[in-house]
Write a protein that binds this DNA or RNA. Sequence first.
DNA 1: GCCGATTTGTCCGTATGTATC
DNA 2: CGATACATACGGACAAATCGG
Lengths: 242, 242
Amino acid sequence: MPKAKYDYIYRDLKEKIETESYSYQDLLPSEHILVQEYGCSRNTVRRALAELAADGYVQPMQGKGVRNIFQPVEQTAFTVGGIESFLESAARNHQKPKTRVLQFAELETNEKISRRTGFSVGTQLYYLQRLRYLDGIPLILDHNYFLKELIPGLTPEIAEHSIYEYLEQDLGFTISTSKRTMTVEHVTQIDETYLDMNDYNCMAVITSQTFNADGIQFEYTQSRHRPDHFQFQDVATRKKGG
Amino acid sequence: MPKAKYDYIYRDLKEKIETESYSYQDLLPSEHILVQEYGCSRNTVRRALAELAADGYVQPMQGKGVRNIFQPVEQTAFTVGGIESFLESAARNHQKPKTRVLQFAELETNEKISRRTGFSVGTQLYYLQRLRYLDGIPLILDHNYFLKELIPGLTPEIAEHSIYEYLEQDLGFTISTSKRTMTVEHVTQIDETYLDMNDYNCMAVITSQTFNADGIQFEYTQSRHRPDHFQFQDVATRKKGG
DNA sequence: GCCGATTTGTCCGTATGTATC
DNA sequence: CGATACATACGGACAAATCGG
């Protein structure tokens, strides 16, 4: 729980924007005003605003002010955004999660696995296959590889609940950066076995390498989503001058 | 072309990381050293490092140093990342781009279009349909809506080349923020007419709302990609304390 | 375990530049 | 032109985490 001032201001402004204390296209109070309101330095206000801009909540305009460009969206599908556990995503999407562990094994990284996952050859891994239900419907098939060295005592029971919760709360682990790739792939035999694909012959696939606060990759995951319940959101900002 | 110091440092470090002057898992020089090397304040160095962290290039560790976590990847598919024009993406992917304008029309935003695109009812729009070729193969089908008010003089000829180039270079326009959603959808009749879908019955679809530097949305685009030549990349960082 | 040196994290006050009005 | 607003940059202070002796 960060007690940083900039983070408090960030959350406070974010909530005000979301609850429409400022409406779409409005200008926020100037940095000068915010400095007075929050009793802090201008740098601190600016840091909070920079984060909101990175989230696509506001657009700072030199000489003019900071414009609110947040639009609330109603979401129908399971939306993936930042780094979240399945439990957290389900809660945010107001859906009831359930996990079934299909496989729980240990293996050693060979050349082929190394190329795909980014783990060094010879390292010990946990390999899991998990089926994810939302509101009772099986929608996601996860293939997880975890670095055994950093995650002692992983069990199927933990995997059925939440591995991230175990890492963060029980092991005091800090999850930090995730590099993700989104693709669309043909359904596999396994997909069809566990998911009702209707007439879709493709899956939305997210592969991710996740690092802890020490910059060590501890996870490689391929997450295969049923297309009709999948959505990935993102905000990008254009860099100037190529 | 930004002449900002932090941006110079950012690019310089980025290139050093990419060309493997620092190798994977190495520590970068400490902020103190970088301050001396670049002859600037610590804040300026820190700003550059923060950008590299947001790019997933480095992982700062309190008390330890800043670790390089960049891994070069060989890309086979057409990779989408930041805000780029089709021309820019093609160049980055080392592919030869071509665009064919299928439709060029003007229309007024009605209730239905407004809900979908985010434009206000009554605003005048350009509507375009464009087929994108890479190395001679039609792979992407774009449906663009542009705010006519902000883009005077758009023509099919411009649309066949690069609208972003026209906006930025001819109109002095600044493209800023893009909110994007990635989904997987069934192929449509139009998709099948123009693209060779082999046995895929799905498309990778990116819809985006793009804003200029004044926080005005000037574009809504649905970009439909053939699955076998599509890849979307992303770096996320986990926020602490929920 | 303690202490001091190192390194990153947060915050402040100030100065100057640039764009807008 | 001056006032306002955001953008960049500097230098300093202290906190928090780490590491070596």
